[in-house]
Write a protein that binds this DNA or RNA. Structure first.
Lengths: 345, 345
DNA sequence: TGGGGATTCGTAAACGTTTACGGACAAAGC
DNA sequence: GCTTTGTCCGTAAACGTTTACGAATCCCCA
């Protein structure tokens, strides 16, 4: 005997009434509703997902697509876990569930995405780690599935996105170092075609130009966006002639900062002394010595904005979030530390 | 017009035939099957998940339960991502999908789990970060949902589990340090009731006793199982009188090693010189200097074993994996480095 | 030529919900 | 007292699949 039917029989009401009572429909007596809700809680009845979503045509699930495998995301787990937490506080208001859709490293991300949407697994999707040209965006938006991207892309389907303010970080960080007397300012960028690399380096170049400093490609250091990458770059820099090294660095990746600090330690170069460093805040960065001057943002708030912006594009929820198509950059706050000393004259 | 019906009409066959063809049933003409499969690929038809699982009573999805929020898991994202990858290579053989079920920090994990299983969201579950007494285990096993735990617990429902060989790490690590002349040997343990802490400390105590060394509670350092925790302990140790400090350490948490190294650097104590350290391998640990003597295991293989052990308990797949109820510990290999010097006589 | 087996396919009944529709009943208005 | 209005609830039809069942066809052999 099916769940709802058993409950109905036990209460001497019809399954229709049970369903209405549980779903908060108005046309059910309050006393009846109370009895139903209590009985449901007592026997631990929860509507079967398959039956429900078959009938309703929606699942109540939003998927966050991630790729698994040993390759690194460039963000620590705390990054995602905190963002998730923000997303979920919004979703909780609407009985929406967030799940992480794990695309195996052996499967093509676009094919995976196709499977997921065709099967009707989730009502909406969140994608991250956007590439400079990202086929997922074209595909998903052609399928008319509500989605939002965490990260800009040159692939533009008029879709909503949210991204960190890399231009702002370049502007504030580079200007700050220039004001402190630095002229050779290094930046880090990922080696692959992750979009944020391009955005940040472009902004960096513009700020330099505005200050009348020539762009030098040797000041852009490319490495995988993880601890190891930061570590590699430290060694690469140690291998440069001292008078050609940058004297200051602005980096946007949280975990690279940590690896960079460690790498510098190894080669006897000291952050805040030999080099000025402006990085990005993270739990791991908190105990770096000297204290890292860094850009900070609330990941939880980012998650909240992400969720609200997504809901704004979903017909069933849009009226509660009249935001239109959100395409915006979230600002970061500069937290001064001791790692960005002025260049001795 | 529904997906399968449109496809059937287009091919002039019945929906039954389409379904059979796509599901590889034997009673369909090979030529017909070819036509169906081609047409399906052409229009991008994928069976609707809700309809399918409503009829079949199963979803083809296995959930990995994780908690979101700023609190740290004790394992970096590479840990999970690599394990996931192993799990998925096994699942791919059976058209099973792995998704991460994200339990918000605002929701009770047991209640969340109840919702998930009652809704029939996944056919089976993987749980991790097991507590010493873990209510999830009782609940889930009472509901007869196939599941496996990554981590032991004193809550025993006769359920399958896999865990790292903490006894082995204690045995090998502590014996090794003793052989190198160390007598005051420190270990790290989480402060909460995560089960692995108890297991490891118990094993540590036994090894000491076997070697005739008295257990000293001051040699057990408790901190959150993340970089910051390792960092904190380094400072705590620096604050001890030098002659009461441990001279060697065995730690099983990968990220704590990194924080510990960093913390020691700050207070002018040097790994491999002041202290002998045996830790756990991780991508971040690779570039620690001096090279960390560490325990290593293949996370991908761990994922593979995890998946196979889970399938062994699922009726539909059990015959392919005649493993019974797997409850075992996976061994780690000691990789010698330069961080565990002998104690000068 | 006819019976029997094998092969292939169509038909229709599930699976567990939600919801449009309409009926029963009571209260209210005249 | 009759109609109207409103409240509450039961009935049954969807939703998109899979699969048991049986029918149709063909081939083979007696």
């Amino acid at each position: 005997m099916t769940g709802i039917r058993r409950l109905a029989q036990q209460l001497n009401v019809s399954i229709g009434t049970v369903s209405r009572a549980l779903n908060g429909k108005p046309d059910v007596n309050e006393e009846t509703r109370r009895r139903v809700v209590e009985a449901a809680a007592a026997i631990g009845y929860v509507p079967n997902q398959a039956g429900r979503s078959l009938r309703k045509g929606s699942t109540g699930v939003v998927g966050f697509m991630m790729q698994t495998g040993p390759q690194i995301t460039g963000e620590g787990d705390v990054f995602f876990m905190s963002v998730f937490d923000g997303v979920q506080t919004v979703f909780a208001r609407h009985q929406l569930d967030l799940v992480a859709l794990l695309c195996s490293s052996e499967e093509d991300p676009e094919a995976y995405m196709q499977r997921v949407v065709a099967r009707g697994f989730a009502d909406a999707l969140i994608i991250s780690a956007t590439k400079r040209v990202d086929h997922r965006i074209n595909f998903i938006s052609s399928r008319k599935i509500p989605f939002i991207a965490l990260g800009r892309s040159e692939t533009d389907a008029g879709h909503p996105w949210l991204d960190l303010d890399f231009e702002g970080m370049a502007e504030v960080g580079v200007s700050r170092l220039i004001a402190k007397g630095h002229r050779r300012i290094g930046v880090f960028a990922p080696r692959d075609d992750t979009n944020l690399g391009f955005v940040f380096v472009d902004a960096y170049r513009k700020v330099l130009e505005r200050h009348g400093i020539a762009f030098d490609a040797n000041m852009v250091f490319r490495a995988p966006p993880n601890e190891r990458g930061g570590h590699q770059i430290a060694h690469a820099i140690a291998a440069m002639p001292a008078d050609q090294r940058p004297t200051g660095f602005v980096l946007t990746n949280e975990v690279m900062c940590v690896g960079f600090y460690n790498g510098l330690h190894e080669v006897g170069l000291v952050p805040g002394k030999t080099f000025a460093i402006i990085g990005r805040d993270s739990p791991q960065a908190h105990y770096l010595v000297p204290k890292l001057t860094c850009f900070r943002l609330s990941l939880r708030d980012l998650g909240i904005t992400l969720a609200e912006s997504l809901l704004a594009t979903m017909p069933a929820y849009a009226e509660a979030y009249p935001l239109g198509v959100v395409r915006k950059v979230v600002p970061l706050e500069l937290v001064p530390g001791d790692s960005d000393m002025a260049l001795p004259a």
